[in-house]
Design a protein around this nucleic acid. Sequence first.
DNA 1: CGCTTCTATTATGTATACATGATGCTCCAT
DNA 2: ATGGAGCATCATGTATACATAATAGAAGCG
Lengths: 253, 253
Amino acid sequence: MIKAAETGNDRSVTQTVRAQLALRDLVLRGELNPGERVSELQMVERLGVSRTPVRMALVRLEEEGLLEAIPSGGFSVKTFSEKEVFEAIEIRGTLEGLAARLAAERGASRTDLRNAADCLDAIDEVMRRNPADIDLLRYVELNARFHNILIGMADSQALARQLERVNALPFASPSALVPVQSRSPEMNYILSVAQDQHHCVLMAIERREGARAEAIMREHARIAHRNLERALTNQRDMELVPGSVLIKRRIRA
Amino acid sequence: MIKAAETGNDRSVTQTVRAQLALRDLVLRGELNPGERVSELQMVERLGVSRTPVRMALVRLEEEGLLEAIPSGGFSVKTFSEKEVFEAIEIRGTLEGLAARLAAERGASRTDLRNAADCLDAIDEVMRRNPADIDLLRYVELNARFHNILIGMADSQALARQLERVNALPFASPSALVPVQSRSPEMNYILSVAQDQHHCVLMAIERREGARAEAIMREHARIAHRNLERALTNQRDMELVPGSVLIKRRIRA
DNA sequence: CGCTTCTATTATGTATACATGATGCTCCAT
DNA sequence: ATGGAGCATCATGTATACATAATAGAAGCG
């Protein structure tokens, strides 16, 4: 078995990064039982790197929020309650709202505005081309791109950093809960609403309407709340959410 | 020279933590030139621990935002523009606003409300006892406590984590810019306004007025903006701000 | 039969050695 | 004098050995 090909073992990537990516994957795929300790030595065996890069990866994943420090030492896989997931989404909405307000108040660059508009055009195209069977993968990609452009328009490193941290929780990122809709008859309806919010926030930013831009982005994130609610009532929907294995579900009727 | 006494070298604290604290101190006191690389080996000499804990500390301080990763490897002391400091304060205000709103909407516990009220009473006392020469140290301590109680009332681990990260930038934390006022004739006036906001936000939370609570905390953070503006125009005021050495000042008239 | 205690194992924290790549300096040539 | 090339030094990434603390399991005692 050639590990090199599998893990992308070229010289340009450090063992630490490789370990970090591999470990994140293990956590998100649920191959490391949530709540359980992550043994360094086991990871050494499993990832094929020595303890040092494994330790570095563990520390970084803790900062990322996917692991939790054990008081007596070491790390365990973090678990999230439904409440925490909701809150993470609310935080994202709040920070994206701030980004939109700053962008509006300060004024976005012409190129940013054009890129955003192009991105929205592309989403419109996706939704128009084949309404009965929307290319969700492309939608997700374009959606993520739009959100990133928006963050860029705020022109604030500090804010971008904070949002990076929120989005590190995979189920909190802008596109995480979109696929949940794929099984819903309302999908097109909800996507239309979301896309309208995209258009509206961009318009608000162009017109320097900070308060409006902020309010829209906050409400926009709450679509994710609705999708989460749906996923929580349906296991099959839940499986479409990345990192869902980390969410400990409440018992539901 | 007994290092043990100086650095608190007892067994209950790991070398990593010790290195982290010592390094943070070095950075904040400006003993490591902003922008320059932080050499591991030099830190090994300077802190008296081996490379491993130094490395761990470096990684953690990077996540904290005080260091910056150098593309070719290693870390450098981060510098902040005035704009970034303003933005960090704005982010804190936004998140504290979210905390206040959540506290109001969800309802705070009786004990939290009492603790908050007691804290405000204590601040009132500080300001009443000796208006001509306010005990700023105590004010700062009580102020920090109130803000922490408020964050606790939101009852959100995720939000608390995010705020921890913002406050890790020493000049962005709630009490960082308070001492700047000490040289100002308006100090008492500004402190009164701030304290009134404290009272108002607590009232709003008690009455479940989420939007008001949020708006107040946002505006409350902007007092720090004003203080920062003052500090930026006066080098002697600036020296009172922790971590101010990391802020690269614009030339001013 | 349950609880405590002791022990053995394994975990992490730490130090250090080694290899490779980056950085800066000197010396040479133009 | 200035620019570039080569070299030496240093810095980091990585692996590993060692020590100590935590943990689990077994055995013995009540």
